[in-house]
Each structure stands twice: as C-alpha cells, then as structure tokens.
C-alpha cells in the first residue's frame, strides 16, 4: 500500500516527472481515465510485477512444453523455450485421446455458444421490450436462479442422463447449458437501453410481427452485447470441468476431462502433461488476445450493473 503515499496532484506540471506532459492541459477527474493521479514509475513497476506474476505460470507451461523431460528440474532451471514443442505435441496426440478431445470441446463449446446467444437475445428482448403479465416476477426468478449452485443437483442429473442413454455422450454436456440465466439477464440489460421503443412502435405500425421485429430491429442492435456474451460463453464452456468429468468417460473426453485423465495416470513426464495443458489453453488464449478489450469491458460493465 506504499503507493498511496503519492500526493494527489491536480497540476501535473508541478511534479518533477511531469515535464513530458507539460504541453498538455491536465485531464480532469471523472473522465473515466482514473482517479486523476498520474501513474508514476513506482505504479508502473508494481503493475509490471503483477503482470509478470499473472503471465508466468502460462509462460512456464509453454517453456516446459518445448523442452525434453531431462531439462525439468535442472539447476539453475531452464526458463526459456526449447526446440521440442512439435515433438511434444506429436507425443500428446499419439499417446492420448487429445485430437478427439479437441474436436469434442469445439463441438460442445460452439453449439452452446450459438444456442446461448440466440435464446438469451430472444428472452432478453421479451423481458426488456415486450409487455406481458408476470414479466417483473419472472425476471426476478431469472436473476434469483443465477445464485443457485446447479452443480449440486449433479446426482439426479447423472441418473437422468443415464436413463436417457446420454451418459458419455456429448449431448449430456450440451443440453443443460443451452441457455443460461446470466445470458438472459445480460442481454436484457443491454437491450433495455439499446433498442428505443419508437423503433419498435414504428415497426408495429408497419405491420411487423414480433418475430420480424426481433430479426430486423433487435438482432442488429444486439450485436455488440451478443459478441461479448458469445466470448464469455465459449470460454466458460471450453473450461467447464465438473459436469463433463462426471458424465463423460475417458473414451469420449472433452479437453478438460482429457487433462484430468492425463493427470490421473501414472505418467511422470511433465513435458507431456504441460504440453497438453498448453494445447488446452491456446484456444481461450487466442480469443482473449483478440478480444481482451471487449472481455474486460464486459466484466467491468457487469460489475457496475450487478
């Protein structure tokens, strides 16, 4: 907490390190650019340390994934990537069900994402813009169900899937996640502000049915929020662990259950395990690097509304 001792500066030029900013008018508070204090070198140093701590385990995983087993545990430790990444990847695909797992995870996460975005937008539209009896109460129910820890119903859910003959099938993972309370509420909050009533009224006057209004007015307006929801949903589905672990078996795994199987085996080959972990991380990492700004924005907006 030492950084708090910096003075609150209203005039950046008055500070010793402020000379590179002297040409500019000082920005005021409340513009969303922070609390007004300029970040000094100490703040940057702390943030860089935080960043390093955040990134290191992921980086380390890629380092190990590119080494031979005997490089692990050397003193001093090897901290830079080696040249064996592709050998190790080949080994993972050779010795485990990882190719199948990647395909399965892609099917599961892709289907869930499309479905959650579609049904959430539809329901969010109804809750935000259509009048019907019980709307308020039903919305409260949606919000309240968010707080319910679904996974505690895992035993009857498993019994049910066995009865359906879905145990160890992908639909057992997909179907329960087709639409989520979070998605419905998220889209409602966005559409409430993004779609003006006048536009819907005009559409009605022109004889549009509700469904046509949805397709031609709501869906185009919903795109930015739908994209953020899609990113969140895909990453959540990709990383989902508990339920796939329960209902799928090792012959038909997702990436996460394949990792679990690998960790539960008797392999002491860390390069194999961490190569698999790295492969499992790549898709979410790519999404995160490409859309990090939107994801950060989604979390911060959700925080304000929640």
């Amino acid at each position: 907490m030492t950084t708090l001792s910096q003075p609150a500066v209203s005039d950046p030029a008055a500070r010793g390190d402020g000379n590179r900013r002297t040409g500019r008018a000082p920005r005021r508070r409340g513009t969303g650019h922070g609390d007004g204090r300029i970040a000094g070198p100490w703040v940057y140093a702390c943030l860089l340390a935080v960043l390093l701590g955040s990134a290191f385990p992921v980086y380390w995983s890629f380092v190990v994934a590119s080494q031979t087993p005997d490089a692990i545990g050397k003193v001093p430790p090897v901290l830079v990537p080696g040249g064996h990444l592709f050998d190790n990847i080949a080994k993972v695909f050779d010795q485990t069900e990882f190719a199948l797992a990647l395909g399965n995870s892609l099917i599961v996460s892709g289907t869930i994402t499309v479905s959650v975005v579609f049904f959430s937008t539809l329901a969010g539209f109804a809750f935000a813009k259509l009048r019907f009896r019980g709307r308020g109460l039903l919305l409260v129910v949606v919000v309240a169900t968010q707080a319910i820890p679904h996974e505690l119903g895992v035993i009857p859910l498993f019994m049910m899937m066995s009865d359906f003959g879905w145990a160890s099938e992908l639909q057992a993972v997909i179907v329960p996640s087709l639409v989520t309370a979070f998605g419905v509420f998220f889209m409602r909050q966005y559409l409430d502000r993004a779609v003006p009533y006048e536009l819907l009224e005009a559409g009605r006057m022109d004889g549009c049915s509700t469904l046509r209004l949805f397709w031609h007015v709501v869906v185009p307006a919903a795109r930015p929020a739908a994209a953020v929801l899609g990113l969140f949903t895909f990453m959540t589905a990709w990383n989902d662990f508990f339920w796939p672990l329960v209902v799928l078996d090792d012959d038909n795994p997702t990436v996460q259950t394949a990792l679990s199987a690998l960790a539960s085996g008797y392999t002491t080959d860390y390069t194999l395990v961490l190569t698999a972990a790295s492969i499992a991380t790549v898709p979410v990492l790519v999404i995160f690097l490409a859309f990090g700004r939107q994801i950060v924005g989604g979390i911060m907006q959700g925080a304000v509304k929640g």
Partner: peptide, 24 residues
C-alpha cells in the same frame, strides 16, 4: 487495456490446465 488484460489473464485459463501447471 494491456494492464487490465494482463491482470485478467489468469481468470480465462482453464482450471484443469492451471492446476496441472501449478502442480508442476
């Protein structure tokens, strides 16, 4: 944005992968 993304990075990685990394 870089710093905000940086602090969020751990949250988007999968629990299983992260646990294996930390186990090592």
């Amino acid at each position: 944005t870089l710093f905000r993304m940086g602090v969020l990075l751990p949250n988007v990685t999968s629990v299983a992968a992260v646990t294996l990394i930390f186990a090592q």
